[in-house]
Write a protein that binds this DNA or RNA. Sequence first.
DNA 1: CTGCCTGCAAACGATTTGCACCAGC
DNA 2: GCTGGTGCAAATCGTTTGCAGGCAG
Lengths: 159, 159
Amino acid sequence: MQPQKEDQQVERFRARCRQRGLPFTAQRRAAYEALLARDDHPTAEQVFEAVRATLPDVSRMTVYRTLELLVDLGLVHKVCHPGKVARYDCNLHPHHHLVCVRCNRLVDFEEAAFEGLPSPRAARRLGFEVDDYTVQFRGVCADCRHHGERRSEQASRRR
Amino acid sequence: MQPQKEDQQVERFRARCRQRGLPFTAQRRAAYEALLARDDHPTAEQVFEAVRATLPDVSRMTVYRTLELLVDLGLVHKVCHPGKVARYDCNLHPHHHLVCVRCNRLVDFEEAAFEGLPSPRAARRLGFEVDDYTVQFRGVCADCRHHGERRSEQASRRR
DNA sequence: CTGCCTGCAAACGATTTGCACCAGC
DNA sequence: GCTGGTGCAAATCGTTTGCAGGCAG
């Protein structure tokens, strides 16, 4: 992600905090920046490790709470995936997922063919107000097809 | 789900166990039947409670293990959702999801408009072999729009 | 008979909660 | 100064593991 784009996003975070009357602290800034610096879907623990590089005394708890705040503010998505540890994604661009049913790996991709799907009628009927969508393709990744790899939490790696 | 359909599915489970040289036990049968009896996405704990009705001495562990076995055999899907407890789905029909970003509720729906999407080119490139897909619509459910409900594990209720 | 299954109890690991202190605004 | 944030430690809760005895094939 380009540096100026990141700054812009941090600014938006600051603004949203203001709007809600919430303090914009150094810890919050650092947590969001750490997340923006990655293009995968880190766990809270991974973000915590990254924030430590800047703020050695930060508490794991603050990172957990900040990530939830970001989700609340709509600046970050909690990734839907079959593992059990929460994973966060700062990429709000519409994009899709390949999920390996063997090892739970989750890989992003964008493809024009899946842009512009209509909002489902069922959503109206069920009272849902739809914001966006993601297509999840279930399958088996290359590694698992070759070796017989088993389920693991190493769901998403660097690109 | 119609009773004869269920029987058929249980038979398939038995056959798959045979194929793999695994015993087909009363506990395994009961766990699968309990799952088939529901049309939502129960947690292991919920399945455990249901199995108890039939087999009062069953262990929670056996249920956990059976559910994983079913996933392995491809008879059950582990649902991708933003909560932390595992949820299982015996409905292998292609269907889609509405996910509430506030309360994490997850609702199934089928709609013709989303049938027959092409297999993504990106999958080939990334070495994925795609079996099927689900479209996940992110949004806010009726309850959350009206009351200010907060995130909870009560992600999926009965239909 | 043998291997896998079962049930139990203890271990684990991610996340949450309660609380005293501190810092933005 | 007041409100909410932070960091710590303890608690929670779903899930996993190790193991002794039991059952399906």
